[in-house]
Every structure is written in structure tokens, then in C-alpha cells.
């Protein structure tokens, strides 16, 4: 009997591992294998189109070079600036729109659908579309500013305007994501708290600032972090819109990685920069999980 009990106890203890094991193995292989491969590639200098046997082992030198190369550091600066500006704009706009669309109004479902439409467009199409909109010769952007008497601007040929262009295209596409997240958060707010605020004489603005936003805090932080992670990985839109130009004014890290791998044919260096980018994105992901881990409540 004692043996049977011990066996049952062992089965009970190992059951979660046996059930979760296959999924963990699959996810582990799917996530870890490419990461380890990238690390391995970062230690080799290898050019696409040549046999792997022609690769030269260079150890960690590519990682050291990536950390000190002014081109990488510049690109990191552009990425940081881009991420900060787009996430800031998207959070402000998305939250404001969500608060507006939260109100029960006729035809609100149609408005919500329209507002989230940009998110459904493929990023490469977004890039091409904005490239035409910002075209100096026949772009709609120059037509619009022409209506208020401003002459045509070289949107994609000026460092500041090109940066503004990539920011605008990202804000256009991803503000709806913030909108959806905040709308979902708003629907989970306990109405009794709002009712209590109203009874206490709070104005609508005070209800937003003192009740709704504090209650949305964790949703807002997680949404901002998710957008930040995405902003660090943005490639397609900038690839189609500016390809990092003019000069390297809009050369965010993913564009630099692409050019290093496929233009300069330095796959090892590109992998090393990718691993560094992965570390930044991982740190942000850990922060996101620390702030709002869906598993946390279950453990308590």
C-alpha cells in the first residue's frame, strides 16, 4: 500500500510536468534554437551564397564591435528616439480616442471598426502608401499643406521631415492597438467606483483623471511596453518608406541589421547586432511581465 501511495504521489507531482512538457519542448525548440543559432552566427563571419564551411570563426569580436561602432550607436539612438516618440503619441491618442468611443452613441460600432482598420493593413503596404502620400511631386501631404499656403516639402529627403514621416505612419497604424486595449480596460472598470465619484460631485474630467486612468494604470503600462517592444522591431514600413535615409536619419536598428546582412553581406555582424537588440527587447518584455503577469494572481 505504501508503495502504491508513493507511486500515486510521484505521478501527481510529475503530472503537470508531463502535461506541460511537450508544449515546453516545442516552444523551447521554436524560440531557443533560432536564438542560439543567431548567437552562433554572431561568432562567425559568413557571406550569404557561400558554403557554411567558408565561414570564419571570429569569437565575440562582432559583439564588441557592435557595441562600439558609431553606426550602430547612431542607429540605436534613432531607434530610441523613434520608439519614445511613437509610443508617447500612440498612448495619448489611443487613450483619448478610447475615452471618446466608450460613450454609448448611435453608430459607435462603425466608428470603432473604422478606427481599427489601419492595424489590419500589411506593414509593407503601409510603407508604400505613405511613400506616395509623402511624395514631393504628387503627394497628398504637399497638397494639404498647399491649401494653407505652405510650399511643397521634401518629406523623405529632409532628415527631420523623414523622421516625422516614419513617426506619422507608425502612429497611424498602431494607435488603434492602444485604442482596443484601453477600450477593453475601460469596460472592466467597476461602475460603482464611477457612480461613487459622480455622487461625490466629480466632474467628467475629474472622473477620468482621478478614477478611470488610475484604474487603467496596469493596462496602460502593459500596452505601452508592448508598443515599445514592437517599435524596437519595426522594419517593413521604414524599409518601404525611407530605407533608413536620407543619410542614415531614419536608420533604426532593424533596418541597419537588414542592410548589414543583405547589402554588406556580413551575416555575423548582423547577427551580433540582432542579439543585442534581442537583449533590449527581452528586458522590456520582462518589465511588461513584472508589471502585469496574468499568472501572478493565480499563484497567490
Amino acid at each position: 500500500m505504501a508503495r502504491v501511495g508513493a507511486f500515486k504521489s510521484m505521478v501527481n507531482r510529475s503530472a503537470p510536468y508531463m502535461l506541460a512538457g511537450p508544449a515546453v519542448l516545442v516552444i523551447g525548440f521554436g524560440c531557443l534554437y533560432p536564438t542560439l543559432l543567431a548567437l552562433r552566427l554572431g561568432m562567425e563571419q559568413w557571406s550569404l551564397g557561400t558554403p557554411w564551411s567558408s565561414a570564419t570563426y571570429v569569437g565575440l569580436s562582432a559583439f564588441g564591435l557592435a557595441l562600439t561602432d558609431p553606426v550602430v550607436l547612431h542607429s540605436f539612438g534613432v531607434t530610441l528616439a523613434f520608439a519614445a516618440v511613437v509610443v508617447g503619441c500612440e498612448m495619448l491618442l489611443g487613450t483619448a480616442l478610447a475615452l471618446l468611443l466608450e460613450q454609448p452613441m448611435r453608430g459607435m460600432a462603425v466608428f470603432r471598426t473604422i478606427f481599427i482598420a489601419p492595424m489590419m493593413v500589411a506593414p509593407i503596404v503601409v510603407g508604400m502608401m505613405w511613400r506616395y502620400l509623402f511624395d514631393t511631386q504628387y503627394g497628398f501631404a504637399n497638397y494639404l499643406i498647399g491649401l494653407v499656403g505652405i510650399g511643397p516639402q521634401t518629406w523623405l529627403g529632409d532628415p527631420v521631415l523623414a523622421f516625422a514621416a516614419i513617426v506619422l505612419s507608425d502612429v497611424w497604424q498602431w494607435t488603434p492597438f492602444v485604442l482596443i486595449m484601453v477600450l477593453a480596460g475601460l469596460q472592466n472598470i467597476d461602475q460603482s467606483a464611477l457612480e461613487a465619484a459622480r455622487i461625490d460631485g466629480a466632474t467628467p474630467l475629474q472622473a477620468i483623471l482621478r478614477v478611470k486612468l488610475p484604474m487603467l494604470a496596469s493596462v496602460l503600462v502593459v500596452t505601452a511596453l508592448m508598443r515599445l517592444i514592437d517599435a524596437f522591431r519595426v522594419l517593413e514600413v521604414i524599409y518601404a518608406l525611407t530605407f533608413g535615409g536620407p543619410g542614415n536619419a531614419t536608420e533604426v536598428l532593424p533596418v541597419l541589421i537588414y542592410k548589414t546582412a543583405f547589402v554588406s553581406q556580413k551575416l555575423g555582424t548582423a547577427s551580433a547586432i540582432s542579439v543585442l537588440l534581442l537583449l533590449v527587447v527581452s528586458a522590456l518584455s520582462v518589465a511588461a511581465l513584472a508589471i502585469s503577469n496574468p499568472m501572478r494572481d493565480g499563484r497567490r
Binding site: 514631393t136 511631386q137 523623414a162
Partner: peptide, 21 residues
């Protein structure tokens, strides 16, 4: 030249001429 040269590839460059700019 026509506005936008720093952003012109071949297509934009040729278009500027063909469109009379």
C-alpha cells in the same frame, strides 16, 4: 532642381523630367 532630389531614386528622378518639373 525639382523639390525632393535627396529622396529620388531612378523612378522619381525620371518622373520629375517627364512631368515637366
Amino acid at each position: 532642381g525639382p523639390a525632393g532630389i535627396p529622396s529620388y531614386g531612378f523612378g522619381e528622378m525620371e518622373n520629375a523630367f517627364l512631368l515637366g518639373q
